[in-house]
Design a protein around this nucleic acid. Structure first.
Length: 549
RNA sequence: GGCGGCGUAGCUCAGUCGGUAAGAGCGCUCGACUCAUAAUCGAGAGGUCGGCAGUUCAAGUCUGCCCGCCGCUACCA
């Protein structure tokens, strides 16, 4: 057995400003879960963390629109996310939020350390100020008429009508979203992260990464080559992590802004997990041991934050591991449109989880993970994949073997006679399948891994068609029983290969076969004579209208 | 506008360093089987690899231009 590896599975922090949809599930949460489940079975020490991102202006804007506190918005969606992870089986070691005291402390520590290292400094700039509310306004708090399309409710950062990036000073007839007052420019002081100081080191690091997805590496290198600009990390807000002493002297009503603290969540969540585990230093095995590995599962819109800015923060802090890989996914689109909860494209994870068995949902998404390209998905395609691949190939294989065995051998594993070459070959192929699925998952080629497992199931179906045990049993009971014994061994192996993808039915199948939950990456042998549970389908075939509301 | 990614069979996608005759799954057609959730297995049809031009003995792969989609463009994260 190889030495266990310490593997940090860091998953994008969902923004608690609205429901998350299948694009998020396929972009980050499901691939991370598959990857983490595999490594746990392979005996590695996995720490998989994430949490709800509770800061940022979309949350405060929404709260003001609804007339509630930001915390109420956050609590609502945090609870929804927890429910979704439970239903879909996303098995976190810790799912927390950026609203914890621990997160604030860790963020402040990172801030202070970077400031001590000379990587953060205060600068003054002119910002829009609301004279009635007596506060500075983030871009999103300013609205007005878009200079491009004349849409009259364009936000200061972007026009929702024509989609263009805006600068709030370009807005025609700008007004404060708080009071309607006309904003004026006033000087204000903020802290800047001096990204420019990391430019050369970062570029050298990015250029030497091995095995990264091409689009991720190129995007990060291209962005960095364009010149890293120092970037403000505080805002005139009262919702966010407080600026730590002695740096809290640049004026009232300022907080550390969300993009700086959100990525720190990976570290703070690891620290929180360690505290909970009873060993407050336990997180160091994933962050300070140079042999530890870290994989960041995110969508492609987040590449710059995870492959450029977060590594800079880590370099500046010192002594912490940089990402081993950032296997960012592209997008799942729905009939060509990017999924977007705010635009009503693509329904929430919970909506699907209420209508599909969790493993059916997991299969439908895992089979089309957008690892290289944007991938289009529709409800009809999901149903077709579930029925025609998952149910027909894997579900039916299990069902047909268990059915014949139950009828002919009184629901027990048959005692095998001498094995033929074809018997040995099917079992050997199953073991190869396990190896190849493992290799694919380690390369974070999760679609390919699932495909390989399905190929394994097809091989066993072909073996059964060739051996025809239902005929053989009528003339040679021992030989027929040997074929079924062989098929059961193969199913036992394939079950393990499918476990990272289909954990619920893996457990169910284990109960039927009289096996413990899968705990290692290898094929458990089913001894002749072992009792089998009742025959029941692993999956239910879906009606064509199963997702029609 | 600038930077990056992508465009391959009806659908969803693989194609490494340029190299037999372009691949998979699903769908479709035909055949076999009838243990199994009308499931399974086998065979087959189906592609001017977005377009044009170029480099090369050889281009899906390299170069240029064009068309289309997506992301980033530093106050969404």
């Amino acid at each position: 057995m190889p030495e266990p590896r310490n593997i940090l599975v860091a998953v994008a922090w969902p923004y608690a400003s609205g429901p998350r949809h299948l694009g998020h599930l396929g972009g980050a949460y499901l691939p991370a879960d598959i990857f983490a489940r595999y490594h746990r079975l392979a005996g590695d020490n996995v720490l998989m963390v994430s949490g709800s991102d509770v800061h940022g202006t979309p949350i405060t804007v929404r709260a003001e629109q609804e007339g509630v506190s930001p915390q109420e918005i956050v609590d609502r969606y945090h609870a929804e996310f927890l429910d979704a992870w439970d239903k879909v089986g996303i098995a976190w070691d810790l799912y927390t939020s950026t609203g914890t005291e621990n997160h604030h402390e860790v963020t402040q520590d990172v801030f202070s350390r970077l400031a001590e290292g000379g990587y953060i400094e205060a600068r003054s700039s002119d910002q829009l100020y609301d004279p009635e509310a007596e506060r500075f306004l983030p871009d999103r708090y300013v609205e007005g008429t878009c200079p491009h399309c004349e849409y009259d409710a364009a936000r200061g950062d972007q026009c929702d009508n024509c989609g263009r990036q805006l600068d709030p000073v370009d807005l025609i007839d700008p007004r404060s979203r708080l009071t309607g007052a006309t904003p004026e420019m006033r000087p204000t002081e903020h802290y800047f992260l001096l990204l420019s100081k990391f430019q050369d080191r970062l570029l050298e690091w990015l250029r030497t990464r091995q095995g990264w997805r091409k689009h991720v590496q190129n995007m990060a290198i291209g962005f960095t080559e364009g010149g890293l600009q120092d970037r403000a990390i505080t805002r005139d807000l009262d919702w966010g992590v407080a600026i730590p002493s002695p740096y809290d002297t640049i004026g009232d009503g300022k907080r550390i802004y969300v993009w700086f603290d959100a990525v720190i969540g990976y570290l703070s969540a690891s620290v929180e997990w360690a505290k909970n585990s009873g060993d407050p230093d336990a997180w160091k095995a994933w962050w300070q041991d140079p042999d530890a590995e870290s994989y960041y599962f995110i969508g492609k819109d987040n590449v710059v934050f995870h492959a450029v800015i977060w590594p800079c923060q880590l370099m500046g802090y010192g002594g912490l591991n940089l990402p081993t890989d950032v296997p960012a996914n592209q997008y799942i689109t729905f009939k060509g449109d990017k999924a977007s909860a705010s635009r009503g494209v693509g329904r929430s994870i919970g909506w699907y989880a209420d209508r599909l068995e969790p493993d059916e949902l997991r299969y439908a998404i895992a089979a089309i993970l957008p690892e290289q390209n944007d991938t289009d998905l529709s409800d009809d395609q999901m149903i077709a994949r579930i029925n025609e691949e998952l149910v027909a190939t894997w579900g039916n294989l299990v069902n047909r073997v268990l059915s014949i065995t139950a009828k002919n051998f009184d629901s027990a594993v048959p005692e095998p006679g001498p094995l033929s070459d074809s018997d040995r070959q099917v079992i050997a192929e199953t073991d190869e399948t396990l190896d190849e699925v493992a290799a694919a998952i380690q390369r974070v080629e999760l679609r390919a891994g699932l495909r390989r497992a399905m190929d394994g199931a097809q091989s066993v179906n072909a073996y059964l068609n060739a051996e025809e045990p239902w005929k053989v049993l009528k003339v040679d009971r021992e030989r027929g029983g040997t074929v079924l014994w062989t098929a059961l061994q193969a199913i036992s192996g394939l079950r393990v290969a499918f476990t990272p993808y289909l954990p619920f039915t893996s457990d169910h199948l284990g109960e039927i076969l009289g096996l413990e939950p899968v705990s290692s990456w290898g094929r458990p042998e089913l001894p002749g004579g072992a009792p089998l549970g009742g025959v029941q389908p692993l999956f239910t075939k879906l009606e064509p209208d199963a997702l029609d509301e």
